[in-house]
């Protein structure tokens, strides 16, 4: 083959740890309120996927003594990619750990993991067991499965946002070593220091990012975002979430200018910030792709085109 898509090809999963006895509250929230499909439960772990996803999970929740982000999983094409990326990461002085298949997660192929400058752990793998689409592969009705109707039931995991005290170092690592590209960047007013960035590897049409970097504590999660079909859908989803007593961020449904998505942010029972998003601009995995540039004094417009006041609490990490 002359041409070949290589390296990271998609966001695979987010794995979080919650101090939630028997994961009772989490399982109820992610299945019944958010509308994900639970695909595996074992003592201390629950795995979920969205109804349009063919792989076994895109969200993994472990029961842990402390709440925290465990790792973010990205899919590469094959084991050759793992070797090449391992060499590039090690060349920066960051140690890489190799795991055989089914370790630490059943159904995952061989993987490499490492801690990025922001303090978060990334795991790269080529295989995540394909269960097939929940709708079946034979002339399917691409409709939300009946048992999930009346919930947001997002279609896909869309992106994960992390915080770090040094956004420039994390953005630089993601760009230079893992070959992510910026779709949007926010800097100080003189353009010098990056404060936040949206980064992508996928050429996709919703969300414009797979990982975003915000200023804040090291190693923490800012939010996890899921894909919805459109803005009208998200308005209805906000009704379902409110009815279930979910804590919705004070921005409410809004156009997030930073990324141009139509977004609704809210919190799970343990305080993890989640997002439903639609729209955005198509991304292109190309070296000449240019990011939208934002400066700090436009932060309020960047975070919400519709709201008049800056919501400081939005900037804090949630896990």
């Amino acid at each position: 083959m002359s041409l070949k898509h290589r390296g990271i090809v998609q966001l695979g999963y987010v794995r979080i740890g919650l101090n939630d006895s028997r994961l009772t509250k989490s399982r109820e929230f992610y299945s019944d309120t958010l509308g994900l499909l639970e695909t595996q439960v074992s003592p201390g772990r629950a795995c979920f996927r969205c109804w349009h996803e063919p792989q076994q999970f895109s969200l993994v929740i472990d029961e842990t003594p402390e709440n925290g982000l465990i790792e973010v999983g990205f899919q590469v094409r094959d084991d050759e990619d793992l070797d090449q990326i391992q060499a590039r990461v090690e060349a920066t002085g960051i140690p890489v750990t190799r795991c055989p298949a089914d370790t630490p997660l059943a159904g995952l192929g061989a993987s490499i993991s490492f801690v990025i400058p922001g303090g978060q752990t990334l795991r790269l793998f080529a295989e995540n067991r394909i269960l097939g689409y929940p709708t079946g592969h034979d002339s399917p009705d691409w409709n939300t499965p009946r048992q999930l109707r009346g919930t947001p039931a997002p279609l896909f995991i869309n992106h994960v946002a992390i915080t770090t005290p040094d956004p420039a170092a994390t953005i630089n690592f993601l760009k230079e070593v893992l070959e992510f590209r910026l779709s949007e960047i926010l800097t100080k007013d003189d353009g010098s220091t990056p404060l936040a960035g949206l980064l992508f590897r996928m050429s996709k049409d919703v969300g414009g990012q797979e990982i975003s970097v915000f200023p804040g504590d090291a190693g923490r999660l800012h939010h996890i975002a899921f894909t919805k079909e459109d803005a009208s859908d998200i308005l209805t989803d906000g009704q379902y979430l409110r009815e279930d007593g979910v804590n919705i961020d004070i921005y409410g449904p809004t156009r997030q200018s930073f990324g141009k998505t139509f977004s609704l942010h809210f919190f799970d029972p343990m305080g993890v910030r989640l997002e439903l998003c639609s729209g955005g601009r198509v991304t292109e995995n190309h070296p000449e792709f240019e990011p939208v540039r934002w400066t700090e004094s436009n932060l309020n417009k960047a975070l919400s085109f519709y709201d008049n006041k800056l919501n400081d609490s939005f900037l804090a990490a949630s896990l």
């Binding site: 349009h52 063919p54 689409y133 592969h137 996928m202 049409d205 079909e229």
Partner: peptide
């Protein structure tokens, strides 16, 4: 309009197949 994500590489997910009766 619509949202649909594919894995970005061939052969990872078996294609959806539509038959004439559908």
């Amino acid at each position: 309009s619509g949202a649909y994500v594919t894995p970005g590489i061939p052969d990872r997910v078996p294609p959806i197949t539509w038959t004439m009766d559908h």
